[in-house]
Design a protein around this nucleic acid. Structure first.
Lengths: 225, 225
DNA sequence: AAGCATATTAAACATTTGTTTAATTATCAA
DNA sequence: TTGATAATTAAACAAATGTTTAATATGCTT
């Protein structure tokens, strides 16, 4: 009977490999990342990838699974809101958590970036990712947007509005290197990220409000007939 | 005296290498792409990369330069508008050209995707790309947005709104594989792309209109003091 | 302390990758 | 037709990459 407590410490080499690989895969993709640089980052011997994971491919899958498990822990989309939260509050929490997932300084932000990369460069793991993470996440946003738009909104319109919001958020994760060069005044610390989320909220709520105005206008036009 | 006409035909192996490499680099990035698969795509011998370009690194730079030259040819941001075009028309052209650059079926769309990749995974070529392509392009959009927002808009707000529009456009280039899986009804043919551009226009104009409303409200509040 | 299981490691191995070399072929001008 | 130049190619080369092997070290139980 093995009574040794499960090694959850960051000194655990298996865990270090997962974190190091996650960062590296997020930066360079699967093909562009070598086992040697992962091991160097993790401070382990090169044979440990095979020993603990059975090879690079399986490491990648383990990283994705590990990321799945961790991705909602630090920044859950609800960010601690209760069921009584308004749709607006929920949207705010969603946007901020998505921004933080992609851009917060420190290790956990590779999760979001790895997801974004897998989306842009599908491997065989994409289907699982779509079903387990993306569908529920996007569905959640669509539910919020649907509530804000009201019953007159068509499903396609809800969907496209949700995509417009997602696109704004993930953009900063992908283009940070350029934004830093072109707009040095844009900060990416905690306040800077909050500022980005606030702007996306303002922009998006403004757009949704305009959709609502058109629905009302359409409603009046119908009632005049 | 060499009177041979410059080989501009698509049968030109140098040209074929550029196109093949462009696609491959856009898909897999610089590190993730091998010289062998480029040559296979191009139908040339592996030594031709060194012969014509001096190596993989220089090929990448040539591809970027070639892309720079080509990237505005098929879909210039103005799309043939005259100087008399309204800001709204110019925004429409800008959004549509950006979408088409990233998603139009056929070879030229790798240009946009390669740009997006270089932005997300900077190599030593990024600074040149920033100065030659991104700064003017984003600046152009900011000019349009600034005109739509009017004089009351602060530079930061203009910038952020422009980024919100760009983020919406490029999102479809990055997440197409996922959207195809989740929303099979979303088409990416010519009409589908036009529909995306139209939605982005509607969403974005709605948001900008809301900004304008707030400026007017602020104006009234000031004139009451 | 002994025995067993697990973890770590250097080295070796097989394959892949970018580059180079040299031979051959094709093209062009005189 | 000849000679020079450019283009193409197979093979070789050097280095990089993922995997395997076997020795050694560590940890745990009896």
């Amino acid at each position: 009977m093995n009574t040794n407590p499960e090694q959850t410490s960051v000194t655990n080499p298996r865990r270090r490999l997962l974190e190091a690989a996650g960062e590296a895969f997020a930066e360079r993709g699967f093909r562009g990342t070598t086992v040697r640089e992962i091991c160097e980052r993790a401070g382990t011997n090169i044979a440990t990838v095979n020993y603990y994971f059975g090879g690079k491919e399986k490491l990648y899958r383990s990283v994705l699974q590990y990321s799945l498990n961790a991705t909602m822990t630090k920044y859950p989309p609800e960010l601690g809101l209760t069921e009584r939260a308004t749709a607006r509050e929920r949207l705010q929490a969603f946007v901020l958590s998505l921004i933080l997932r992609l851009l917060d300084e420190g290790r956990p932000s590779w999760h979001g970036r790895l997801m974004a990369r897998e989306m842009a460069e599908p491997t065989s793991a994409l289907n699982g990712l779509v079903d387990d993470v993306i569908r529920p996440l996007w569905g959640q946003l669509e539910s919020i947007v649907g509530e804000l738009l009201g019953r007159r909104a068509e499903p396609k319109e809800i969907r496209l509005c949700a995509q417009s919001i997602i696109g704004q958020c993930v953009h900063y994760g992908r283009a940070k290197a350029v934004i830093v060069r072109l707009y040095p005044e844009q900060r990416f610390d905690s306040d800077g990220l909050k500022g980005l989320a606030d702007h996306i909220m303002k922009f998006s709520l403004g757009a949704l409000r305009q959709f609502n105005r058109e629905y009302q206008r359409r409603g009046r036009a119908l009632s005049r007939k």
